[in-house]
Design a protein around this nucleic acid. Sequence first.
RNA 1: GCUCUCGUAGUUCAAUGGAUAGAACUGCGGACUUCUAAGCCGUUAAUGUUGGUUCGAUUCCAACCGAGAGCACCA
Length: 582
Amino acid sequence: MLKSHFSSKLRITVIQDIIKKLIDDACEALGLPKTSFVIEHPDNVDFGDFSTNVALVLSKQVGKTPRELAGTILEEVKKNLPSSISKVETAGPGFINFYLSKEFFALELKTILEKGEAYGTNDNLAGKEIILEYTNTNVLKPFHIGHLMGNILGESISRVFEYSGAKVTRITYQGDMGLHIGKTIWGLMQKKDAFPKESDSVSNKVKFVGEAYAYGSDQYEDNSESAEEIKIINKKAYEKSDPDVNHYYDLARSWSLEHFEEIYKLLGTKFDHYYFESEVAEDALKIVNEYVEKGVFEKSDGAIVFKGEKYGLHTRVFVSSQGLPMYEAKDVAHAIRKYKEYPVDKSIIITANEQDDYFKVMLKALSEIDSTVAGKTEHLSHGMLRVPEGKMSSRKGNVITGESLILETEESVREIVKDRELPQEIKNQIAEFVAVSAIKYSVLRQAPGGNIIFDKSKAISFEGDSGPYLQYTAVRANSVLEKADYKNKAMSFETMQKEIYKIEHLLYRFPEIVLRASDEKSPHYIVSYLMELASAFNGFYANNKIIEAGEETQYRLGITQAVHNILWNGLYLLGIRVPERM
RNA sequence: GCUCUCGUAGUUCAAUGGAUAGAACUGCGGACUUCUAAGCCGUUAAUGUUGGUUCGAUUCCAACCGAGAGCACCA
């Protein structure tokens, strides 16, 4: 059971306030000292819907055992029980447990149905403007699964922030200069006989570019003559001084960008602004040179460096001894430029965690230059995707591109639906939605920051703890509602349920979960919750007739509609679409 | 060598200092001629080691062992 922690800041539902006040009032009436205590959902539903440790916290000061004190507080609480609570009792080492009533659940159900798509929103970030930078790709290099991870996380967090009332601007900052450009162009020139045709698909074109990059990288390492040529080409590309080089660069760049756009469309991301590294190169040099004089940077071995050791960090080169701005310098200039164009409350950059230490140094340098921008800029990292054999590398040939992963997963889905009697159109939709869902889920299910061990044969799951399981449940709920011709009818209280279904203990918690995910920038809380909810619904479905259930029909359909609403909203927050049929 | 992150079931992941450490996959065993079986029910199985703080530690602290990442001219 996923617990929620209710600090005063995170309390958003009325019932939490009611319980808090009950305890506060009881403590005051008993003359107990003020203290901070926790109200949480117990692990086990048998222990009630809410639980507090107030007696455990206070027992020592008061000089009573926790159980005794819990009993005393309990008697006081019982005097003022509202209709939303059906039972209170002490348990365990000194907890006080609260059980919600049928009235509460019926009212909450009504709220879920009435709010529809807005159920789960909160105003934690109301009025705040946030810029999120993610999927920082490099043109002329493959879009690999690391980029996929960043995109999946970035898009989900964007949506969660929007659900919390923020105005989110999505941007991506792409590397369009640097040695990899020279390597790829050199590789393209070597392979010009095998060049793709104009009419070839974008996929084939970028695949060819990827091979050229791999070849160029290899030769750069192995062959000093080639390395020299690559450096020369790179310089020409930077200066735009050679028409031939420009031609290859422009062509490959346009292919890369077109390819990225195709993937973003498939994943459901739309960037508001595309930034390029080359756009800030000049500013980067200017800024660094200016702050050498102000003592922020110093010269060392011909390069301009930032000495991070003063702050417990490490030294990094900002301008090379050849006078070229390194990505450190460009990132500083980029951050300042971004803030000029979008003077937001917070600017978040999402990258893989291998850049954690780098960002500490860059942000420290930035804080010496522009403390306002630095104060609002935050680095958030996701884990690395590891294949069982170790690190991915183009030389080993075990780089997994984003596109190949999606296509292979789609293929597996097609295999599953191939014999079903469904129109081809629906089958295509299923293949795309389910494949993307399976991949997204495998990234979002765990807390961000941790590495993901990616075993191709079993990482992408369609059963159990998986995206398709959630989609399937949503489709199933929808199917029941369609069959019953039930379209969000208002709940009638004459049809009050006879019993409390287990799933009702979960339904009302969705807004808390979204809030926590927003507060901690961790969509995985939503994943765990939806998984638990879907599981509860499938159990409910297996054990209860929904449509022809006599007096209970309306209420059960209401629950089904509530599950439908929450699954749709929750999956939207994960960036997952629900197919019409499955 | 220094810095950072991380060690939970056979595997992949959860768990705000609280009650019986949750799922899923795998294995084994079931139910159903009921609204979608990508489903449902049952079952085996885990906090790296040693200390410390605490009424209470998977969670905080220290040491050790193990894994990964970063550490000067690539992004």
